[in-house]
Write a protein that binds this DNA or RNA. Structure first.
Lengths: 236, 236
DNA sequence: CGTAGCCTTGAAGGTGATCAATGTTTGTGG
DNA sequence: CCACAAACATTGATCACCTTCAAGGCTACG
């Protein structure tokens, strides 16, 4: 077994992706994997470049985004530890990355070769189930955001924060609800198709009302009920 | 072999999903399948109901949508023949449909049981590749639309029409570019998060300029170049 | 110590939603 | 087969919401 890999087996086991597998199976699946240390804003996959690798987030977070025709960044998804990146495109020949992937703060990711996916991952139905399950979640996120398209700004932001609160398994030992990814207002705006200013106006308003508080780009939610009711806006 | 099924084998073979498979393999995969004839607006899957079946569109088209908090319909995707519906949720236990599925005009769909997916489909890597490839396309559509969030209306509609022109393999024997799905202005609006009126204003404008023409809910594109340039809006 | 990235606030202006009214097509039951 | 209802298309007027632009403060980091 790869010595390199052995060190992170403990981490991998905790992810739902591998939880039912033995150490041997896991390390077989991650054969030839390389742990890459990234610093803030470091780019690991680029939109349009040949997709030869996929990855599993180990720690930190990664941002999937693209540049729109006006040259603005549009964020597709934020990936937390345990999520697989670029699995879908592994299923196609000569494919290119459909998004650009950048680290958000210091992060670590396990990089694996495409051949590994087609040869070892794809032949394991239980694993495919897990992956499709992850995709299903991603798809839900996108769909939910689409659902909010015509809702007012406050509903969009509230729903957005709630989504990222729910979906990433957070340590529930303390009551604090913290968004597990360091988010700037600009990134939230880029993810929702809103301008930074609009996001700021909404969120600083909530800050004053003690519904959320943010320090150092970590957002703490103090009044979930309010956000929920806000995201369910029904006029009249 | 099921006699019922035999009749549609010819149709199934044409779909890229089954193209490399023998008739025997295909019919094994579609074992116990039922061809369902739907009329316009008929609902086959309902959001939130237990997901026990998935389906393959045979003819016509199906609309995947959800109701947003304000009670308006939000369209997630339009499915053309050959597309698999609800495959992703088959991967989860006790799952419910993430969307409501309705026929658009008279349509036919092959309905299959969940067990079939987990037992027969999931164990065939080539098939999984095809399905993941379809999902990848769906994901791209969603992402592209997300990319256009901040673009002006005309760019959104243009990009939308182009997407549906490209993605569904159209008979290229004649030069006519026709959107392969009967779309109302309202549905386009629901898909893009725009009001009907806005869509109408944009499209009737194009109609006058002979860029598109629409009869009977089928939209014909006469000047693709214009739409392309419109969707690539760069201000200044 | 200066630059770069992020946050904040204010004022002005435009885009697209909303509301209302009317015409057109499709479909259904008497 | 006609009448009436329902769904769809259209056009105009008004106005709120969000974007844009501008200016300034704050913190981190080389």
């Amino acid at each position: 077994m790869d010595n390199h890999l052995k060190a992170i087996l403990g981490e991998l086991n905790k992810f739902s992706l591998f939880e039912s597998l033995s150490d041997q199976e896991t390390s077989a699946l991650c054969d030839n994997g390389i742990v890459r240390f990234c610093k803030h804003r470091e780019e690991i996959f680029s939109f349009g470049k040949p997709a030869d690798y996929f990855g599993i987030v180990l720690s930190g977070a990664y941002k999937l985004s693209r540049l729109n025709p006006m040259g603005e960044e549009s964020v597709i998804h934020f990936c937390a530890p345990g999520e697989v990146i670029a699995a879908l495109v592994m299923a196609q020949k000569n494919s290119t990355y459909p998004v650009t992937v950048k680290a958000m703060g210091p992060s670590r990711i396990l990089i694996l070769k495409k051949e590994n996916y087609t040869q070892n991952w794809l032949v394991r139905p239980e694993l495919i189930l897990k992956i499709q399950s992850q995709l299903s979640t991603r798809m839900s996120l996108l769909q939910n955001q689409k659902l909010m398209q015509r809702a007012p700004v406050s509903a969009k932001v509230a729903a957005f924060l709630l989504q990222y609160l729910m979906n990433h398994e957070h340590d529930s030992n303390d009551d604090q609800l913290i968004i597990p990814v360091p988010l700037t207002r600009k990134e939230i705006g880029d993810a929702l198709g809103l301008s930074v200013e609009t996001v700021i106006r909404t969120m600083s308003d909530w800050g004053k009302k003690d519904i959320i508080s943010s320090t150092d780009q970590m957002i703490k939610v103090k009044n979930v009920e309010f956000l929920i009711s806000e995201s369910e806006v029904i006029p009249d």
